[in-house]
């Protein structure tokens, strides 16, 4: 727990804080990385803990919809690839919890907040994976949207988060190719397979667009995050980049975008029709199709595993005691 001790907020006068804050902002403006032992404003620390832990929770809850198909994957090759991918997501979660711990939070308290329903995770994982094509769409679009969000985070002002993102993005881009390849195989397959692919796109498209968060006028966190160089692009900018990258890919697959109002403007941007922000609000409020299932699956794993974690702790303590006793002899 040394990170906590090192990061305990130092006592200081308000005047001193103002000096530190301006020095901090100058470093951020100069594109320097802020490291765990550096002074940082309490609000910066709080924002990062919130964002990094939400990101970690998303990776962990995100294991569930894809995990739903590991035992039913249609070939041994697909089964191995999917299992490896879900394992990667778990690794990202661990990595991110570790990044949050450099800010003085503990993994246990962060996980407890998620299990209590007090911390958020990405809204997208509250939708069900109904067919195999959903695994293709998740890789192609959900991971594609995640990459779009995370590439700028590789330059985030907070060093441990930025470095974590570099590694995560590399793996995510592999996941995206895996997803697109599943889609390509389906679209080149039987009519039934192609219909499965189109149905999956229809169901996931709008929820994927919501992954970028509310429209810019309605976003609560952007201003401070932008000043601190945690966030480099607005929600709407990233959403537009994603759509522009995705539409030609869908065309190549021979799939129809499930948005009758989608048109290309004079600058070449694909403009989308209205997003149902009420649906987004409802999913965040706990009313998505799978919110209850996801939380109860995580709670069950945590509760069922309690005796195992207790046993590991008890054994470690016994062993340490025995070693002490032996050393004393």
């Amino acid at each position: 727990m040394y990170t906590q001790a090192l990061n305990s907020p130092e006592e200081g006068s308000l005047a001193e804080d103002a000096v530190r804050a301006s020095r901090f902002q100058a470093r951020v403006d100069a594109e320097e990385r802020i490291e765990p032992n550096d002074w940082m404003p309490a609000a910066y620390r709080k924002t990062l803990v919130r964002q990094i832990s939400q990101h970690a929770h998303s990776e962990i809850v995100g294991m569930l919809p894809e995990g739903n198909w590991i035992t039913r994957a249609p070939s041994l090759r697909r089964k191995a690839a999917l299992l490896a991918k879900v394992q990667d997501e778990c690794g990202h979660g661990l990595y991110l919890y570790a990044a949050a711990e450099t800010l003085g939070a503990s993994r246990e308290e962060l996980v407890d907040a998620m299990l209590a329903g007090k911390a958020k995770y990405s809204s997208i994982f509250n939708y069900p994976t109904l067919t195999w094509a959903d695994i293709g769409v998740i890789g192609w679009l959900v991971d594609g949207a995640a990459i779009m969000n995370q590439i700028p985070l590789c330059r985030c002002s907070y060093g441990p988060y930025a470095r974590a993102m570099i590694r995560v993005c590399k793996e995510e881009s592999f996941h995206q190719r895996q997803g697109y390849e599943i889609m390509l195989t389906l679209c080149r397959g039987t009519a039934e397979q192609k219909a499965m692919a189109q149905d999956a796109l229809n169901r996931w498209w709008w929820p994927v667009l919501m992954m970028f968060g509310p429209p810019d006028q309605a976003s609560q966190h952007s201003d401070a995050s932008t000043k601190w160089k945690i966030k480099r692009f607005s929600n709407d900018e990233l959403r537009q980049k994603f759509i522009d990258a995705t539409v030609p890919q869908a065309q190549y697959l021979g799939l129809t975008m499930p948005d009758p109002e989608m048109t290309q403007d004079a600058q070449g941007h694909w403009r989308h029709g209205p997003i149902d922000w009420n649906e987004f609000k409802q999913v965040l409020a706990g009313n998505g199709p799978c919110n209850r299932d996801r939380l109860s699956a995580r709670r069950k794993a945590h509760a069922d595993g309690a005796w195992v974690r207790e046993a590991a702790a008890a054994y470690a303590e016994k062993r340490a005691r025995r070693q002490m006793a032996q050393a004393a002899e």
Binding site: I60, M63, L64, G67, I70, T71, L76, R77, K79, A80, L83, A84, V86, Q87, C90, G91, G93, L94, Y97, A297, K300, A301, D304, G305, A306, V308, R309
Partner: peptide, 29 residues
Amino acid sequence: LSEWCGHAPMLEEDMALSNMALDLIGQAR
């Protein structure tokens, strides 16, 4: 072993059990 993925007692075991499942599926292939 792959049935544990996402449901293990701790994240480290989600990783380990998936890893061993991958080894075994690789052997099977």
